[in-house]
Amino acid sequence: MMLDFYRRNEAIILGTLSLASIGVVWQFVVDAGIVNPFFISTPSEVFAEASIQLESGKLYKNIAASMYSFVLALGLATIVGIFLGVLAGWFRDVESILEPFIWFKYSAPTIAFYPLFVAWLGYGTPTIVAIAFLFALTPIYANTLSGIKNVDRDLVRAARSFGARPLDVFLQVALPGSVPIIVAGLRLGVGRALTGVVVAELFGASAGLGYSIAYHAQLLETSKMMVSIVVIVLLGVVLTQLLTWLEKKTDSWRVH
């Protein structure tokens, strides 16, 4: 009975066990005096600190600030990325026009242009959104492009045999066929937008999870930093899982 239950849920049980033991070891090395809590805090202290921040509304404020920038940046990147990707996927000349710049974007660490954005937009939300937007844009554009460009030729031929016009082929064949790969691009974009937001917040912001880390780092308050770090990791996992779920849903018609 027990063994049966274990076998069916082995991945979940062992995974939980592993996460739990990380917490236990973390608490233990501090309690046993092996590591100074100043460096790594402890799970119990992080938890206590999280409750305090929750109650005072500080945690909520920081999450809200980061999510505001995140949603704005991801929204913009989605619109621009899909728009350009569709154009470039459908019109080869547009792809040629954009290619060198995308090429450059691939190899240039966007963050190197951070001081430039500060010069243009000042410290704060506009710069954070701009950086996160650029972080998220590339995978969304690239996936949309490849989805539209690699439209199934058999399907195009079948559509044409019934007299489909270019717009029909685009709307009925190329676009629906690209949905799963575009959603996969969004999934990558989510992680990158989050990175962009919190990294840009490290450098200059007045609220947000990244800001909170940088702020408490200066005061050497490890527990308070850890709260934001844990929240960011959780946000990353939850958001990505959400998109993975969406990806599977839109991909259900594919023959596996």
């Binding site: 199934d152 058999d154 079948a158 045999s161 019934f162 629906p176 066929g177 949905v179 018609w253």
Partner: peptide, 18 residues
């Protein structure tokens, strides 16, 4: 060009999977 007077039955892969 293609026209209404003809219709084609293709091999397996030509149905819209979605």
């Amino acid at each position: 060009g293609p026209g209404r007077d003809r219709a084609v039955v293709f091999q397996d892969a030509s149905l819209l999977p979605w």
